[in-house]
Amino acid sequence: MARRRRLVGLALTLPAVVFVGVFFFAPLVTMGWMSLHDWPLVGRTKWVGLGNYKDLVTDSSFLHSLGLSLLFVLVATPLSVLLGLALAVLVQKNRTGAGVFRSVFFLPMVIGFAAAAYIWLWLLNPDVGHVNQILGDLGLMDKPILWLAHTGTALVAAVSLFVWKNVGFSMLLLMGGLQSIPDEIREAAAIDGAGRMRTFGSITLPMMRRTIALVLVFSTVGSVLVFEPFYILTRGGPGNSTTGVVQWVFSTSFFNFDLGYGAAASLVLLALLVFFSAFQLRAMRDES
């Protein structure tokens, strides 16, 4: 009976294992193999060893795309975490209306990134969009702003899109962190004469550091991988100035048909992400 039960357990798990093997581990290994080759979409592949990686290190367009993604992370992540924290403080207590506001702030999260990017594309359009119209009506703008035609304003557009869509997620996790701190601790601090700001700064925040680290990691990984905002809003332009690293891999593989080179870049990106994820795992292991 015990033996049969173990066999049944194995049999039940097998379909998922096969699936993950075929659609995850096989591509992962293939990617490593491809990255060591000159691999056109059609035609012969040629072994180049670490040649692709050597080329990547000196490829200015790749380094630029990596730089852009990092710049995006450095702007979008702190904003998303700080605003998320502010929203979490605002709606953490179960008072009338808090539940509705939580849902409202979280709502953009469930809309697809592509759909959200089309909304932004339209709102920021200088002719038909409402953003310039509002700025004009409020007298904040003398001449139309071509949001998506300049690198700086395009970055502002993409960051605002990312924050709008993701801040609800940060809010949710941080709210969980806030709620897990017992009220007694804060009350004790108040009795000891600490003001609200003081209590928040020297008691609440330090106790939430793991949640904050976690949100930082999620936000970082999410913003490194961001694709739709730039692809749909600017197509990577003007020039290549807003081409992020995922879009760079995409066009290298599927426009230039240089699959081996694209695979090598993917692995570099993956190494970066594993680095962040390891950090995440460590933060969580400390907790248990």
């Binding site: 096989a26 591509p27 990617m31 491809m34 991988l225 593989s253 993917s266 992400l273």
Partner: peptide, 11 residues
């Protein structure tokens, strides 16, 4: 640990 975006070429 590995987002789909990174794996698309070999997939």
């Amino acid at each position: 640990m590995v987002p789909v975006q990174v794996l698309l070429t070999p997939l």
